[in-house]
Design a protein around this nucleic acid. Structure first.
Length: 915
RNA sequence: GCGCGAUUAGCUCAGGGGGAGAGCACUACCUUGACACGGUAGGGGCCACUGGUUCAAAUCCAGUAUCGCGCACCA
């Protein structure tokens, strides 16, 4: 019989009320079911199905819009888990919550995908033409664009699915256009002929931060450039280059003006006959050249290197572009035209070698730029592009962080943000793609008029001729930067003003660190500009990077990625969520081993079974919702309520808002090690006694119910399922909108005395169990135990009395036939001994006590405690310590020393008695 | 080159000026009426190294080493 099937008879023996709770938790049975219910009930929308309290401040988060081409990876899984934890907690706190969902049109990525699809049919985008190609992109989005949205649902993310946005929506496009025109009119957007990063595979320009640099083992070719006329008998000079093929576009050789080796050449205005061409080029002097590098002579290619470009401008050099848009040599390359970059390199080197112009080749380690979308080597390329002048725009974004209005968690990322903004370059925003927001600049080829237009126009306002729109589209990030306000329909939608008034700014932005520049900084910049100086969010949460088990970045090329959907399949979304959140700390990246998630599935199972136990326990009690309340009757009750109160206070401490790991650990610790390991076990003993039956059951349900609420943001499905089965007096139909526990109200349960009493109880029980293990005594065999509270004075009597209150519990947990607790008790004949502070715990073991072994153990214990005490005594004898240490520390040290002294006295006496 | 992290038990990692912690793994015992996806009891660490500050340093500071990550690049 499959193990997940439960027979009728088993059901009846478990509980009539709860036939649906099998002994083992199976996430698949519940996760999709609860997600559908929440969605149908409208809890994900901003008014949470009417459960939100509109007097409370709204809690809004915008999702970093995943690419429409995207599939969920571990970074998404982590980031969206964290956002969901924040959003769910806010929703339970009664705040109107809204987690704005949407996808990014992802210019290059989508265009690549559609082109691949066309290629499979033997077509290129040029076969279709621009309009048909864009139509194909929209179709592609229809067909595949919701994959990642469906995956977010599987994670349990409580986004507003009914109100999804897309960065190419009509309304969104109007925002993009307004921003472009505004910045254009104000001189912040301009056109220029510059060296930009060109991807010859995507055939488009890229921004500086869309280029990824890899370290590569390259070569340095030393080339001989013959002088036009020998100078002082010197016939050539040697330049060193990593890119010999670009020599076809050289227009000068540069040396440092102070370089003794070349002063004669500079002074005589010597010239170089550029090999493989018929050109004669000058030798120029410029401070930029580092005499120590290579030969100290630099070949200058203004059209193919940004530094050479600047150099060329300073010296009025010609710019010769030798590559076409696919980085094949063009007509300017003479005999080499038609070759690819790689072929050209080989051919040029060969040709130079044939002419004995190749002096040597050396190994050279250097970094090479690659396209962040397709990893093709970037070609620095001279072309006409659009730019945003960033410096002025960046100033307010810098100030916002400096003045503490924009805060980063962990804080050190602020430096990364500021560093970028303070060294900002102008932003190349034009892309030679078809899929995207087309640049709204129109040209009249007849009279030369041009302008950026808010509305399309077909006729020139000056001469009436046909207008032509710019062919380029905007960088995807140009539209994504508007996400925090364009998602509200700004500026064109009728209700956008009210929407912004109600929900802007958002509360927190959670993101990966690799888009702090690409996205976060630009959102801050554009929002400050267009939202009247109001930041888009005050908190930026930068989550750790998910690495593989060996500590490598997960990537397609490495093939070491882990699919979150498979994790959900194996461990449940809740297990994955809890495991990811628990590993989030401020400093470390997250070295992720999927196997480690098993323990969180086990934790979910523990929660499941604790609930089963509680339900079993109350099955015959007919406990109504109103009866579920805290009833601090015994020390055990007071203890667990006190611990619960402390947990709530910890979780609500604003200083820990983004400490997901610490909060998850606190929840885990409380639930497993305090509630399950001790309170449930104590409760088993209490419920055996009639007078405590009802109050204990009520406490069990109460504590469990509050714990489920606290756990809900982390493990939403499981907790909802279990909460439904529990009685509760909350007055809402679903846990997702149940009120967040009132930590301040719970502080009245904090009870130091009860915590001390139960700590002593635990110490005694553990000591007896330890003795059992030592002597190999079966847990079933009852034992006789005597506990002596040392001292014999009034204080000892009071302590003994308090402990006697726990006698039943101790008997039950330690499986004792007899227990005596008193001050002034003597060691019974033939008893094993444990000493805990001022307690002597005697376990009677008639006939089996191994006196030698006991003596040895006690002596070992004595040695350890003596060492510990010596440390404390040394401290207390130190005048500096007494004079300067915090009084509470001194007090504690004295108490500890007294405890150790007392324990040592006990040990000493017992050792003497055993001899 | 500049910057930022990390270095704690076999592994993965918390913690953080005042007697070294968790989970996993390991050892022994236990199928006890919630759970073997469990329980109980154990073993296991000069908290990378060297200095400094301090009454007190695994914790703060400086330096060193190793690993990782950014940014900027010299062709």
């Amino acid at each position: 019989m499959p193990e997940n099937q439960t027979t009728e008879s088993e059901n009846q023996t478990v509980s009539k009320k709860l036939p649906e709770l099998p002994p083992t938790y199976n996430p698949k049975d519940i996760e999709s079911r609860w997600f559908s219910v929440w969605q149908q009930q409208g809890y994900f929308s901003r008014d949470a199905g009417g459960f939100a309290n509109n007097d409370k401040p709204p809690y809004t988060v915008v999702i970093p819009p995943p690419n429409v081409t995207g599939v969920l990876h571990m970074g998404h899984a982590l980031n969206n888990t964290l956002q969901d934890i924040l959003v769910r907690k806010a929703r339970m706190q009664g705040r109107p919550t809204r987690w704005i969902l949407g996808t990014d049109h992802a210019g290059i990525a989508t265009q690549n995908r559609v082109e691949q699809k066309l290629a499979a049919e033997g077509l290129s985008r040029f076969d279709l033409g621009r309009d048909a190609f864009i139509e194909a992109c929209w179709q592609w989005r229809e067909e595949y664009g919701s994959t990642i949205i469906e995956q977010l649902k599987a994670v349990g993310c409580s986004c507003d699915y009914a109100d999804e946005r897309f960065t190419m929506d009509t309304a969104y496009a109007q925002a993009v256009r307004k921003v472009f025109v505004n910045w254009y009119v104000n001189g912040l957007i301009y056109r220029g002929n510059r060296i930009i990063n060109w991807c010859p595979r995507c055939t488009t320009a890229l921004a500086d931060d869309e280029v990824v640099h890899h370290e590569e083992a390259g070569k340095l070719w030393h080339l001989r450039y013959p002088l036009d006329k020998p100078v002082d008998g010197v016939e050539y000079l040697v330049v060193a280059t990593t890119r010999p093929e670009t020599m076809l576009g050289d227009t000068a050789v540069a040396v440092n003006p102070n370089d003794q080796r070349y002063q004669a050449l500079v002074a005589t205005k010597a010239q170089v006959r550029l090999p493989l061409t018929d050109r004669v080029i000058p030798i120029i002097a410029d401070d930029y050249v580092d005499p120590a590098f290579g030969t100290g002579a630099l070949k200058v290619t203004p059209a193919h290197d940004p530094n050479d470009f600047e150099l060329g401008k300073r010296h009025g050099l010609e710019q010769i572009n030798i590559f076409d848009e696919r980085a094949y040599v063009n007509a300017a390359g003479g005999d080499f035209s038609g070759l690819s970059r790689e072929q050209a390199r080989e051919a040029v080197v060969k040709a130079l070698e044939d002419q004995d112009l190749l002096e040597q080749i050396t190994e050279h380690q250097h970094t090479v730029g690659h396209c962040y979308r397709c990893d093709t080597t970037i070609e620095p390329w001279l072309s006409e592009q659009w730019f945003v002048a960033m410096q002025k725009l960046a100033a307010p974004a810098i100030a916002a962080a400096r003045e503490g209005r924009l805060r980063f968690y962990p804080q050190r990322w602020q430096n990364v943000y500021l560093n970028w903004l303070e060294n900002i370059h102008d932003w190349c925003i034009s892309r030679q793609l078809w899929w995207g927001h087309r640049i709204p600049v129109f040209y009249c080829d007849t009279c030369g008029w041009s302008d950026a237009l808010a509305e399309d126009q077909t006729r020139c306002p000056i001469c009436g001729a046909q207008l032509r729109q710019d062919d380029d589209v905007l960088d995807t990030w140009f539209s994504s930067q508007l996400w925090p306000f364009a998602t509200y329909g700004w500026p064109s939608q009728p209700d956008s003003k009210q929407q912004l008034a109600a929900y802007y700014p958002t509360q927190v932005l959670s993101t990966a660190r690799d888009i702090i520049f690409l996205w976060v900084a630009r959102m801050v910049i554009s929002s400050l500009y267009f939202m009247e100086g109001q930041l888009p969010f005050g908190d930026v949460l930068v989550h750790p990077t998910v690495l593989d088990a060996e500590g490598n970045i997960m990537s397609k090329s490495r093939g070491n990625g882990v699919d979150p959907m498979e994790l959900i399949d194996s461990y449940g979304a809740d297990g994955m969520r809890f495991g990811l959140a628990l590993q989030v700390t401020g400093t470390q990246d997250l070295r992720f081993n999927p196997d480690n998630l098993l323990k969180y599935r086990h934790f979910a199972n523990k929660i499941w079974n604790a609930t089963r136990y509680v339900l079993l326990n109350i099955a015959d009690l007919d406990l109504g919702d109103e009866a579920v309340r805290p009833m601090p009757t015994t020390d055990a009750d007071r203890w667990i309520l006190s611990r619960l109160a402390r947990l709530c206070l910890y979780l609500d401490d604003e200083a820990h808002t983004y400490d997901f790991g610490a909060s998850a650990r606190a929840l885990h610790e409380f639930f497993w090690n305090e509630f399950c390991d001790w309170y449930i076990e104590l409760a088993k003993s209490q419920t055996a006694r009639k007078p405590l039956r009802a109050s204990t059951a009520s406490n069990l349900v109460y504590v469990l119910e509050v714990a489920l609420r606290l756990l809900h943001p982390y493990m939403p499905h499981l907790t909802e399922e279990l909460w439904q089965a529990l009685p509760h007096g909350v007055g809402v139909p679903h846990l997702i909108v149940a009120p967040w526990p009132d930590s301040l109200g719970l502080t009245r349960f904090i009870d130091e005395a009860a915590e001390q009493h139960i700590d002593r109880l635990r110490a005694i029980v553990s000591a007896v169990r330890s003795t059992r293990a030592r002597y190999g005594i079966s847990p079933k065999q009852g034992l006789r135990v005597a506990v002596n509270v040392a001292g014999g004075d009034e204080e000892a009597k009071i302590k003994a009395a308090a402990l006697n209150q726990q006698a039943d519990l101790i008997r039950s947990l330690a499986r004792l036939d007899a227990l005596a607790i008193s001050s002034g008790l003597r060691r019974p004949e033939q008893a094993a001994l444990s000493v805990v502070d001022d307690l002597e715990i005697f376990v009677e073991l008639v006939g089996i006590v191994d006196v030698k072994a006991e003596l040895a153990r006690l002596k070992k214990e004595q040695t350890k405690l003596t060492g510990d005490l010596a440390q404390l005594t040394k401290k207390l004898d130190n005048h500096g310590f007494i004079a300067k240490a915090d009084p509470s520390i001194i007090e504690k040290t004295r108490e500890d020393a007294a405890g150790l002294t007392s324990a040592l006295e006990r040990l000493h006496a017992q050792i003497e008695a055993l001899r």
